[in-house]
Structures are given as C-alpha cells and as structure tokens.
Simulated assay, not measured.
Amino acid sequence: MQTSELQWTSQEQSIAKAAFDKAYEREIKALVQVVRDQASAVADTDDVWRLHDFLSARRHELDGKYDGREAALIFVFADLVKEGWLSLDDLNGLDALKLSKITALTRMM
C-alpha cells in the first residue's frame, strides 16, 4: 500500500495533529532561542541583514517541512523523528503499519 493510500481514522488524525503541533512548537522554541542569541550579537548593518537572511531561509525551510497533508504525513513524521523534534512515543496510537513505515523511513533518510 502506498503512503498516499493510507487511511487515517479520526483518532489518528487527532494524534497526528497533536504530534505535528508539538514538533512545530519545539522547533520554533529552539529557533526563537537561536534568534535571541544572534540578535544579541548584532553590531552593525551587515549583522542585521545576516539575521534577516537566516530567518528568511529558516522560514522557507519550515514552511516546506511542515506539510500537513495526510499523504505527506508519514514522510514528515519520519523527518521530524530523525531530526529529534518528535519521538516515536509522540506517535503512539497510530496503527502499526504507519508506525513501521515511519520507523523504516527514519533509517533510510
């Protein structure tokens, strides 16, 4: 079965939404700390533009990474687990097939 063909129950949709939101919140919290650290070191205009460029790049990356479409969630969750923003425990309640696909993808990515 292709990942795009996986059916998500309403309970799984709730679990996925909570995990998705938790990962996003964790990553944004870490980003805010990095921005605070970088902003405290701003000394001139070049530093301001470097911070701007950094934030623009991160926004682009995050907008692409957090794809909430059901067809993409298996890949999104695998990426987030691999990066440490989620653990497999955060996904408890998803069916075994989805969890096994996520686990396998974390090893391949």
Rank of each mutant, 00 (worst) to 15 (best):
L80F: 09
F75M: 15
D46Q: 12
L55S: 02
G64L: 12
L94A: 07
D90N: 14
D46N: 11
A96R: 12
D47K: 09
A71M: 08
R36K: 09
A104G: 03
V81K: 04
D79V: 11
K98A: 11
L80W: 12
K82I: 03
A43W: 05
T45P: 02
A104S: 05
S87P: 09
A72K: 10
D63M: 11
H52K: 03
A43G: 15
D95I: 07
V35R: 00
G93M: 13
E83P: 01
Y66D: 07
R36G: 04
V32S: 01
F75C: 09
E70N: 07
D47Y: 04
V42Q: 03
L80P: 07
T103L: 13
D95M: 08
L86C: 13
H60C: 03
V34G: 00
D63C: 08
A78W: 12
L51R: 02
D89T: 15
V48F: 04
Q38D: 06
H52R: 13
L86Q: 09
F54V: 06
V81S: 03
R59W: 03
F54E: 02
F77Q: 13
A71C: 07
D95E: 13
F54I: 06
Y66L: 08
L80C: 12
W49T: 02
I74A: 06
K82W: 05
I102W: 08
A39P: 01
I74E: 09
D89K: 14
A30M: 02
G64Y: 12
G64W: 13
L97N: 05
V48D: 02
R58Y: 01
Q33C: 00
S56V: 14
L97T: 10
G68P: 04
S40W: 06
A41K: 07
L86F: 12
A39M: 05
L105H: 08
R36A: 07
D44T: 09
F75S: 15
K98R: 15
A78T: 03
L55W: 00
L86A: 11
K29P: 00
D53P: 01
R59N: 10
R59D: 03
A39N: 04
V48L: 13
T45N: 10
A57G: 06
N92A: 14
K82S: 13
L62E: 01
K98Q: 11
D90S: 11
G64K: 14
G84V: 02
T103G: 05
D89W: 15
A104Q: 04
F75W: 11
F77A: 14
A41N: 04
D95H: 13
N92V: 13
T103Y: 15
A71N: 09
T103K: 10
H60P: 01
D79E: 15
K101A: 04
R50Y: 01
Y66I: 12
D67T: 01
V76W: 04
I74G: 05
F75E: 13
L80H: 11
D53W: 05
V34W: 00
L94V: 05
D89F: 12
R69N: 07
E61I: 08
G64V: 15
A39K: 01
R59V: 06
L88G: 12
A41M: 06
R69M: 07
Q38L: 08
R50L: 02
K82E: 07
V32E: 01
T45I: 12
